[in-house]
């Protein structure tokens, strides 16, 4: 319990600090939202009047405090760009990004586990060489290129996949999965390389452990031993990086969301930065940071469940 509580508190602190830093950085980077909105027609008087109307002429700490107090009360404010509630905009997009991220993890994890374990069992033999080649390809293939190839040759060539857009689950589960299958596949390939590598190496280490020898001496079959001991530690390895990769996934998501015209958080973030929609950007960053913090927390807890020796100091409730 104490462990969970302390993780929770540090999570809240991270969210506060990150939102504060984002705010400061946005204040400092060049580019004026008022000027952007007025374009090449602006006069200095226009810009001043619009800055006033947008509330950007207040000191930065007043703006931040105003934002933070309303954030605490659950109000993210209105997007200047779209005139819409920021929470509405984010909620519209969360299902898209979350489904893409989850599906890509669902594709990547079993495949990576399977290949990684096989590669470790047949170290330096043909399956291992093939697996390592696959890792290289997964790492080296530019995802934008793969995305375009899939779009032009798979999506356009068959009526299975829509070329653009997202079908919500409410309009049919299979249609929904199909609308994100190709982008998820692109993302999963990027994940797989790292995952296979980690599974393979942790499996190799586990195979060399003394208990393997002990099990062999006790006459337990190799298959049984592997399933019971090294495989368990091999599963923990990708669990940790899933947490870390979630953050990395988001940057990949921006790219595939653009190519497959998926209305997800990544694209919203991009527009918020380009258009200097300060509060929208703040809102998205806080939501993303919170997600990563929560996922890390969950992986931490899962980690401890999967491997009792990880429990801090060995004692546990």
């Amino acid at each position: 319990m104490r462990f969970i509580l302390s993780r929770l508190l540090s999570g809240v602190a991270v969210i506060f600090v990150v939102s504060f830093i984002t705010f400061i950085i946005l204040m400092m980077i060049p580019g004026d939202p008022a000027l952007l909105s007025l374009g090449t027609e602006a006069t200095p008087e226009n810009v001043e009047a619009l800055r006033d109307a947008m509330g950007f002429n207040e000191p930065w700490y007043v703006q931040f405090l105003e934002w933070f107090t309303s954030f605490i009360s659950g109000d993210l404010g209105r997007s200047y760009l779209y005139g819409e509630e920021i929470s509405t905009l984010i909620l519209q997009r969360v299902p898209v990004t979350v489904s893409v991220a989850l599906l890509s993890l669902l594709i990547a994890t079993p495949i990576a586990l399977f290949i990684g374990v096989i590669a470790a069992l047949y170290q330096n033999k043909l399956p291992d060489v093939l697996a390592r080649t696959l890792m290289q390809i997964g790492d080296a293939m530019p995802s934008f290129w793969l995305a375009l190839l899939l779009l032009v040759y798979v999506a356009a060539g068959s009526s299975l996949f829509p070329i653009s857009g997202f079908t919500p689950i409410s309009e049919g589960f299979i249609d929904s999965i199909l609308s994100i299958l190709l982008p998820s596949f692109v993302l999963s390939l990027g994940l797989m390389g790292t995952m296979i590598r980690i599974v393979r190496s942790s499996m190799l280490i586990a195979l060399k452990e003394d208990y393997m020898l002990l099990a062999k001496m006790n006459g337990i079959s190799k298959f049984k031993t592997i399933v019971k001991y090294p495989l368990r530690s091999a599963i923990i390895a990708p669990l940790t990086i899933i947490g870390m990769q979630m953050a990395g996934l988001l940057s990949g998501v921006i790219l595939v969301e653009n190519i497959f015209s998926l209305p997800g958080l990544g694209r919203l973030l991009l527009v918020a930065v380009q258009q200097r929609d300060l509060f929208l950007l703040q809102g998205i960053v806080v939501v993303i940071v919170s997600t990563v913090v929560i996922i890390n927390m969950i992986t931490d807890i899962l980690y401890r469940l999967a491997n009792p020796t990880m429990r801090i100091g060995g004692r546990d409730e």
């Binding site: 779009l151 032009v152 999506a155 653009s164 497959f260």
Partner: peptide, 12 residues
Amino acid sequence: TMMPDATARTTA
């Protein structure tokens, strides 16, 4: 339909 990518637009 919002389609930011040019290849996606021509493909569609």
